[in-house]
């Protein structure tokens, strides 16, 4: 039996496999470098310094808030794009995709233009509510949401569109209104994609640097998230910067592995 298989199976193309191996090495080397560079003996002390802890806490709070906002704001938009025909839909979809391709720093500049107290919308935020987004934790959350939201919207919209919408028809003929149908039928059917979209958004928010530093600035304890702290400390205290990088890497890997089997593969 195995002989037959061996004779009928075509030999793998060596050049392609070689190139693929090189690519894997290209991905693995930086990670290995990070592990090799780490000062393992002082890792714990580096990570438990007050400034590291505050950056870590800020990163988690802001990225999770941005994820929650992305879900809250992204769902209605994804549903509208997937289910309602309206003029200018292509334009709206393009608009949603802009933050994906826009250099984050440009996104930051755009946010400043709009939401700083002198900006087009920020003026009213400041005058009416006394809200000043730049240099505030809320500003970090806004910047992170701006870059993270598209991941959620496109993932969930794609799921809603690829889902058999006749399930919604069946629900309607059984007497279910729109909200009941969404809650009991559509949402359960696309849960894997919702989770995948939320995880992608969260990962993007956690790693956000350019838009955050441009829009919210870098204020320790208020707007300095882990990536910002890493950037600041890389020259002066490289050990701490590497330790923080390892912490970010560990968080990402844990979430990826935990969700891999359960959700991401199905989505």
């Amino acid at each position: 039996m195995s002989e037959v298989v061996a004779r009928t199976t075509r030999r793998p193309p060596l050049a392609v496999v070689g190139a693929a191996t090189l690519t894997v090495v290209f991905f693995a080397l930086p990670l290995l470098g990070l592990l090799q560079r780490a000062a393992w003996s002082s890792l714990w002390t580096d990570l438990t310094t007050p400034e590291a802890l505050s950056a870590l806490r800020l990163s988690l709070v802001c990225s999770l808030s941005a994820t929650a906002l992305s879900v809250l704001l992204g769902f209605p938009l994804a549903w509208t794009l997937a289910r309602i025909a309206f003029p200018g839909k292509a334009l709206v979809r393009a608009l949603v995709l802009v933050p994906l391709v826009l250099p984050p720093v440009v996104g930051g500049v755009a946010l400043v233009s709009a939401f700083s107290p002198g900006g087009a919308a920020g003026r009213y935020l400041f005058d009416w509510f006394g809200v000043q987004l730049p240099s505030s934790t809320t500003g970090v959350i806004v910047a992170e949401t701006f870059v993270a939201l598209p991941f959620f919207v496109i993932t969930v919209e794609a799921a809603l569109r690829s889902m058999d919408s006749r399930f919604e028809d069946v629900a309607a003929t059984l007497g279910a209104g729109r909200w009941y149908t969404f809650r009991r039928v559509s949402l359960p059917l696309i849960v894997p994609s919702v989770v995948a979209g939320a995880v992608l958004s969260w990962a993007r928010a956690l790693g956000e640097f350019g838009a955050t530093i441009t829009f919210a600035g870098r204020i320790e304890g208020t707007t300095e998230t882990l990536p910002l702290a890493i950037y600041r400390l890389l020259d002066r205290r490289p050990d701490t910067a590497v330790a923080m990088s390892l912490a970010l890497l560990a968080i990402s890997l844990v979430v990826l592995v935990a969700l891999r089997g359960r959700w991401l593969e199905r989505a």
Partner: peptide, 11 residues
Amino acid sequence: PPNERSVSLVF
């Protein structure tokens, strides 16, 4: 609308 019509459809 279909959800208020009380018409069942078996696909």
